[in-house]
Write a protein that binds this DNA or RNA. Sequence first.
RNA 1: GGUCCCAUCGACUAAUGGUUAGGUCACCACCCUUUCAAGGUGGCGGUACGGGUUCGAAUCCCGUUGGGACUACCA
Length: 490
Amino acid sequence: MSVRVRFAPSPTGYLHIGGLRTALYNFLFARHHGGRFVLRIEDTDRTRYVPGSVEDIMESLRWAGIEPDESPLHGGEFGPYVQSERTEIYRQHAQQLLERQTAYYAFDTPEELERMRERQQAAGIAPHYDRSSMRNQFTLGPEETRRLLAAGEPATIRLKVPLHGEVKFDDRIRGTIVVPCKDIDDQVLLKSDGFPTYHLANVVDDHLMGITHVIRGEEWLPSTPKHILLYQAFGWEPPEFAHLPLLLNPDRSKLSKRHGDVAVRDYIAKGYFPEAIVNFIALLGWNPSGDRELYTMEELIAAFSLERVNKAGAVFDLAKLDWMNAQYLKQRVERDLPGLVAQLRPVLAQRGWNPDNEYIGRVIVLLHERVHRLPEIAEFGAYMFTLPDYDEEFFRSTWDDSLQEILEQLRSIIETTEPFTASALHEQMNRYSRERNIPFRQIGTLLRLAITGKRVGAGMMDTMALLGKAEVLRRIELFLAWSTRHAPGN
RNA sequence: GGUCCCAUCGACUAAUGGUUAGGUCACCACCCUUUCAAGGUGGCGGUACGGGUUCGAAUCCCGUUGGGACUACCA
């Protein structure tokens, strides 16, 4: 049987980085086995729906290179792929369960259920729906049930979980899992508003859409026994299950917004590359064995297997992501500089800088090893696009009046250096250093202060060559004027 | 509280009964060097604990401890 997997997010906001990893693993598994990857939107809770979510989910997946074979956008023979368009299907299936007597009507109000839980808590027992004491078709009898239904009384349909026995299933990642039926709650399947809960819709759709492997987050592990029971209630064969380890905050709780960015959007905005994000999250909970760190999507597809997915949760470590992104930044500078220029241009424009592409490209080449993300160049290398802000602390610790004369001499050297290249500048500065017995390091630092205002940066000879003679001379003039106003003595 | 899951350096992980427990990030030092990076070299640092099984255990079993998820007419 050919593999069919799905990613089934709820449109309750931006796509979460954890969701992206789940989608990625499904995608890798499908591609590895030559199967199909389905995107299904689970919007059965109208109250949590956030407009624009579906678009963000699809855009984020596309950005990452995770293209579904079937989806609301791509279509497919198993549609519709949006659950709110399938409500009639769920209602029919709930009806089917009623007829098979594996589900039943219940009429309890939220308040009654709340009181039930309070009673159970007070009695020190685990909260669960008490079929024998609450208002349902068993306690009310067939007559009363029909009457309430006819009167339009709000009703839910619940799963009739066996009182005895156990549910057993094999998880592809975690092995055999056994849960006693007495610990499984009579889950609501159809809400009183006529919409299905996740559990019903999910099981019905996975079956109808021919899903062979359910690969999802570990948070679903506790409800899987309910799902197995549901398959049995319908008389269906359950799919294979694989529950992925969670992505964690630094404190090892489930990855959440409190500790930083979790939306894929955020990482796109910060200028992370899709190949870096994909590579990074692929290795969070899975590893092909061996010492390699960098993989292309094709290589991930070739190597992926459920057997090598870890069981323990993985902390999302930004420092390593940054390192990885820097690796891809270097790679892109070599392979696709024009693409980087096009990406950095709008970031610069936002600050009101509009240099030509050639110049942007050269600045990227000059500075890219000093940042992790491309947009950082606008910050780190602002002085390449506009007049410098002098680091006053650096100035005070570096500058003294004797340096003014040296700087003026350096200015004369710069004026006469032709061609105005890094190597020519280096040669001239070196000669001056030897003749005047001034350490080269001091010259570099002095020029850096005057021209960039900063303590750190790329090599000064390269920086000056790129800035151009006129601009360098202008900045030295400006600095000289500024320094007399800010000199320690004044 | 209950149910279930999990446990190798600070983080991500490799080692599927036999290795001086390996690699990457981070951190530290050194080299390179006009600064900072990048790069190179080296270092720091780990099998949660206790019992078994075995000639031999990170690996298998049991217990303890710790962590997490779930416990809705949310997903």
